[in-house]
Amino acid sequence: MTFATITALAAAETEHHVGLFDTIGYGIVALVVFLALGLVTLSYRNVANRHAPKAEAYARTHADELTQAGHGHH
């Protein structure tokens, strides 16, 4: 046997065939992850409006502090 024949036989034995499910499996996992992240993002929708009365009450009680606050203004 020559070196080329031994190398070819070794390469043929170590060759691994990837099935269709292995390839599609990555896509399915990615889709599930993106859908889960999308649901998390949608769960934060309209959060500011849920707490609007509390924010308005805070603004009324701290009106003096809020008008004085700013970037570099004293």
Rank of each mutant, 00 (worst) to 15 (best):
G27D: 01
T2K: 15
V32M: 07
N46I: 01
L20M: 09
L20T: 08
V29S: 11
A59W: 00
Q68N: 12
D22I: 13
G70S: 10
E65N: 03
E13S: 13
H16T: 15
T14L: 10
Y58P: 00
T41C: 08
N46T: 02
I24T: 08
E65D: 09
V40Y: 03
R45K: 13
L66T: 00
Q68H: 07
A36T: 09
T5L: 13
T61W: 01
A57S: 11
A36Q: 02
A11I: 10
G70T: 09
H74M: 07
Q68E: 07
A12R: 15
A10C: 05
S43K: 15
K54G: 01
T67K: 14
V33N: 04
L20W: 05
L20E: 04
A36W: 08
S43R: 14
F21K: 10
A36K: 07
A57E: 10
A69G: 02
H16M: 11
E56H: 12
L37E: 04
V29W: 09
V29A: 14
I6T: 11
R50S: 02
V40H: 02
A10P: 01
H71T: 12
I28M: 07
V18F: 14
G19D: 02
T23H: 13
Y44I: 06
L42A: 10
H71F: 13
L66G: 00
V32N: 01
T41S: 12
A52Y: 11
G70W: 11
